[in-house]
Design a protein around this nucleic acid. Structure first.
Lengths: 205, 205
DNA sequence: GCCAAACTTGCGTGATCTGCAAAATTTCAT
DNA sequence: ATGAAATTTTGCAGATCACGCAAGTTTGGC
């Protein structure tokens, strides 16, 4: 079983989560990841500085751990869905099925979002992770649309999908309003189906 | 005059360019920016290490100097065009008018492209610069479409435009084929006008 | 209980990036 | 041309980062 195979696995996972949480907690407390050191994060989680770097290459990566995990699962889900669905629908449904809103604490995510958007190093780390996702997903998209990964079309389609994923989630997070996250995602993906360039959006948002 | 106002200005610009070129040359020679140090770049350009860091915060930024300059000019151009054109057309035309193909050496750009795509730190730096561009352009897009910068629509539109800009240029660079860069850009922007999600591209690429 | 495998830790190293103040250079007014 | 003012270059020191290495510690299977 890949599940709780042993004490060892569980301990490692716990340490990794503890480090990530410690990073977030300290970054919030000090109002910015730049004023937090790897040493502090390690201390907060009760391990040595060296061990911190065994788990994460940087404090930025530690803070974005959940995000990275989630996109990893998204990718696996997408691979499955692409076998039976048009790729655009697969992307939309996979994005909805991540259930960001249920899986994570909304306030934590808001804090994280704010930290990211006010830190160049976190912006770089996050967009770097998106590019990684792009590189991993391009084969799926190319195969699904019957094109080559070197063609223009799959790149544009995938780029649009990733932008939609990121924007809709961020938008919903900044103002949940009346809608559920799933509705916001659905609306965002629909905007591309009607042609993003032509009409201004019907009412307002 | 902002033009050649004095010896001082020109010397600074020359130093900056020399540092950027030195970074590219060394990165090509050593097959990767990671095996080049800031110290080496400074030496190659004939200044001290400290001076290098007066001009660029990192070797990655030095290597991407041209790119950063170009997007800066694009932004100014876009601001102008948005006054008289629909934003999507403004983006397309501004992208074409950057004249990447005339302004820079094709082989240099290919090398740079390859260096970027095989270096995590360069990918992060570049995508970070794109996010910076996003932040600076979102107001223009929102104003131009009569929406708020917090709405979903301008973010998706801008994201699509940036993806198109990046993808079309990269795609043309990797295989100039029969087309000009302007034609490749035009084709890419047109794909969104027809609705990127629905039809596979007509023939192949 | 014991051993091999895996994990943690401390140490050392090379590199990054920044602040600060002294030295060198350029500009400008006279 | 000359000297004062402004600006740039430079060296140095310091904080941090990120990683290799080797010794110590813990875990899991038998």
């Amino acid at each position: 079983m890949a599940e709780s195979t042993g004490l060892r696995e569980r301990k490692k996972a716990a340490t990794k989560a503890a480090l990530s949480e410690a990073a977030l907690r300290l970054a919030i407390a000090k109002e910015g990841i730049e004023s937090v050191t790897a040493e502090e994060i390690a201390a907060e989680a009760g391990v040595s500085t060296r061990t911190f770097h065994n788990y994460f290459p940087s404090k930025e990566a530690a803070l974005l751990y959940d995000f990275h995990e989630t996109t990893g699962r998204l990718l696996a889900d997408l691979r499955e869905r692409a076998r039976t669905q048009p790729i655009w629908d697969a992307f939309r449904d996979a994005t909805i099925d991540m259930h960001f809103d249920e899986k994570f604490d909304i306030d934590d995510m808001r804090c994280r979002e704010q930290l990211i958007h006010s830190s160049p190093s976190l912006i770089k780390e996050q967009s770097g992770q998106f590019m990684e996702l792009f590189a991993e997903a391009i084969d799926i998209v190319a195969a699904s649309t019957g094109t080559s990964k070197d063609d223009l079309y799959p790149r544009l389609l995938l780029g649009a999908a990733l932008v939609t994923m990121k924007s809709s989630t961020e938008h919903w997070l900044s103002d949940p309003g009346e809608r559920t996250l799933a509705e916001a995602i659905t609306e965002a993906f629909a905007l591309f189906e009607r042609g993003i360039t032509q009409p201004p959006p019907a009412p307002a948002t």
